[in-house]
Design a protein around this nucleic acid. Structure first.
Length: 251
DNA sequence: AACTGTTCCAACCGCTGCCTG
DNA sequence: CCAGGCAGCGGTTGGAACAGT
């Protein structure tokens, strides 16, 4: 990585989706621009430039700052890495809880979720969701186990990781399934919909919130009592794992 | 040691909406 | 109203690092 990469004119033309002027603009914009991982020197240049001149135009800035990068690349690097007050490292339990709540409410609107988590970027949250949360919570429907520590956002040790991989399912990590509620019980508890309904409406890739989902009935609007019930599903389990147990029982 | 598979995340791509002339 | 430019967003990808065989 890190090699200077020159856009081939034919490669750009081949795409054939842009107007002539747009194609030429892209060619000139991308010719001999560096791509891939940023070097410490590049980071320093961008940081120093923005510190001195501020952000004015992402497309013009790279040249002014002496960088062989596209404006888009600079913007992304600044927003996701160099910006002051960026929080790096593992997500706290509280942050994970917030992400889950907000995702339930907002769907894949990562920037909106990031706005509620100071120091965290939309990209980081999106990555965390896709790698740590989504897989565990939504694709495990056919599985009967929920690996609690991962769901809770608690970093696992290498030993822990080894243990999980070496044994199919470690009993100590399983969460005891709670009492399964039927649709009526769900509505009487104040939940917006039953897991079955929820799962049928849920789209992990959709950027729009779940349809027919009343804003006032989101997690944050639930009463303490109900939150307590939810947490008994294994800290702060989701509709996904909820659903999973229902499926198991339905067989 | 060498190879293969998996995980994770930084960075890229393409689309959309806003703004301006 | 329209076209072009720009910033921002969300989905996707590439590859480094690590684990397993």
């Amino acid at each position: 990585m890190g090699a200077v990469w020159c856009f081939k004119r034919e490669e750009v033309k081949r795409r054939n989706r842009f107007s002539r002027s747009e194609t030429m603009r892209r060619i000139s914009q991308n010719l001999c621009l560096k791509r891939g991982t940023w070097s410490p020197d590049e980071d320093h240049k961008l940081r120093a430039y923005i510190k001195r001149h501020g952000i004015w135009n992402w497309n013009e800035m790279p040249q002014a700052a002496g960088l062989l990068r596209s404006g888009k690349s600079c913007r992304l690097r600044w927003m996701n890495y160099l910006r002051p007050n960026i929080k790096r490292g593992n997500f706290s339990k509280e942050e994970v809880r917030t992400i889950i709540k907000l995702h339930e409410k907002l769907g894949n609107r990562w920037s909106a979720i990031a706005a509620k988590l100071p120091g965290r970027t939309d990209n980081e949250i999106k990555n965390h969701w896709n790698t740590h949360l989504k897989g565990r919570l939504y694709s495990n429907i056919s599985n009967t186990a929920v690996l609690a520590p991962k769901v809770q956002g608690v970093p696992i040790s290498k030993e822990e990781s080894k243990k999980r991989k070496s044994s199919d399912i470690d009993a100590s990590l399983l969460i005891t399934a709670p009492k399964i509620l039927n649709s009526e019980e769900y509505s009487s508890k104040g939940f917006p919909m039953s897991p079955i309904q929820s799962a049928s409406n849920f789209s992990s890739s959709s950027s729009t919130p779940v349809s027919d989902f009343n804003e006032n009935q989101t997690w944050s609007g639930l009463e303490e009592e109900n939150l307590g019930l939810l947490e008994s599903f294994g800290e702060f389990s989701l509709w996904g794992s909820h659903f999973q147990w229902k499926v198991k029982c339905a067989r």
